[in-house]
Amino acid sequence: MKLIDVKPEDLSLSPDLVRSGSAKSFEDRLRASVDEIGIAEPLKVAATPEGSYLVIDGSLRLRAVLAIREKDPTRFPTIPAYLLDYDLRYEIRFQSDIYQDLLPSQIATLVEHLHKSENVRKIDIARYIGISPATLRNYTGLGRLMERGGLPARVVELMDVGVFPSSNPYAWLRLTDAGIERVLRERFAKDADPEAWVGEMIDAARLGGNERYPLKYIEMVTAALPAEYYHSGEDVRAIKRDLGLRRAAGQRTHLAFQQARSHLSQVSKESSEPVLVTAAHAFDNYLARLL
């Protein structure tokens, strides 16, 4: 996939590629997020025969941008997007729908079934549903929480309804069942019964409640317990291995980007070809945004 910057006016929508609908509260939260931090996940687009770009995935993000530009036309002169094959637009849309329409617990169950029962490699599963290997590892973590049952599985239910973020299940996995019980009781349920609190939060969320806990808070409260509330031995080694893979991947990518920028800087200074210098500058700016 090639990452490009596209002018909003060059983007078009097709009714058969747009999702049928979404809750207004979700669109409001998405618009607020885009307004504050920009487009975190680029759109997926395809070049049309007419010369414009068809949005395959990202219609809600585009609507958020257009709403912001109505108030301030100077915002978002371009939008980042992955350029994909026009002939594969329906296949890509289908893959995105599979990922977006399933709950975190359902994706975790699907991943484990495909891997264990159908012998599909996890890296291939990630490619099929259009997510990164790191994100797929998160679903493996969710699967482990569900296998433990009890309050660990109830934590995943809270992720399904959006009360807890599902982006770092290892924050919970490192805890024993007693550790999870203590965190829920002291940090969330205000010393009430954790099981009852979980049920109340799930019911409220399904009725439109907007109680949400940010990832940084989850990581903070799950990291502040006495040692006896954390797993030891093979369990913790497995969790650390997963976390280490994620960190190592990020460090390798960061180092590779730095090396690439160094080479691009050398090209910009030493090349006598204007086109090559311009391309090096553009690519360097792109890498700078990713670091």
Score class of each variant (00 low, 15 high):
K2L: 10
D5F: 14
E9D: 15
D10R: 07
L11Y: 01
L13Q: 07
P15L: 10
L17A: 01
V18N: 01
D28C: 05
R29I: 05
L30M: 12
L30R: 05
A32G: 03
S33V: 07
S33M: 13
V34D: 02
D35P: 05
P42G: 06
L43I: 03
K44P: 00
K44S: 04
K44Q: 08
V45M: 08
E50R: 12
S52I: 09
Y53D: 00
L54T: 01
I56G: 00
G58F: 03
V65Y: 03
R69P: 07
K71E: 11
P73D: 07
F76P: 11
P77L: 14
P77I: 13
L83N: 03
D85C: 07
F94Q: 09
I98M: 10
I98G: 01
Y99W: 14
Y99T: 13
L102Q: 03
L102E: 01
A108H: 00
T109C: 02
E112C: 08
S117M: 13
E118N: 07
R121V: 08
R121F: 15
I123D: 14
D124N: 12
I125M: 08
I129E: 05
I131H: 02
T135P: 00
T140N: 05
L142R: 03
M146L: 14
G149H: 10
G149M: 03
G150V: 03
P152K: 01
R154S: 02
V155S: 00
M159L: 09
G162N: 08
G162V: 04
V163P: 00
S166N: 06
S166P: 03
S166W: 12
P169D: 04
A171T: 02
W172R: 02
L175M: 10
R182G: 02
V183G: 01
V183P: 02
A189P: 09
A189T: 08
K190H: 11
D191N: 15
D191F: 15
D193M: 08
P194H: 00
W197H: 12
V198T: 06
G199N: 13
G199C: 07
M201I: 02
I202K: 09
D203M: 09
N210D: 15
N210C: 07
R212A: 05
R212H: 11
L215H: 10
K216R: 14
Y217K: 15
Y217D: 06
I218Y: 09
E219A: 10
M220G: 05
M220T: 13
A223H: 11
P226N: 09
Y230L: 10
H231F: 13
R241L: 10
D242V: 11
R246I: 06
G250R: 12
Q251N: 12
R252K: 14
R252Q: 12
L255R: 15
A260R: 15
R261I: 13
H263W: 15
L264Y: 02
S265P: 00
S265Y: 05
K269I: 07
S271K: 09
E273S: 12
E273L: 10
V277H: 07
T278L: 11
A279N: 05
H281N: 07
Y286W: 13
L287C: 03
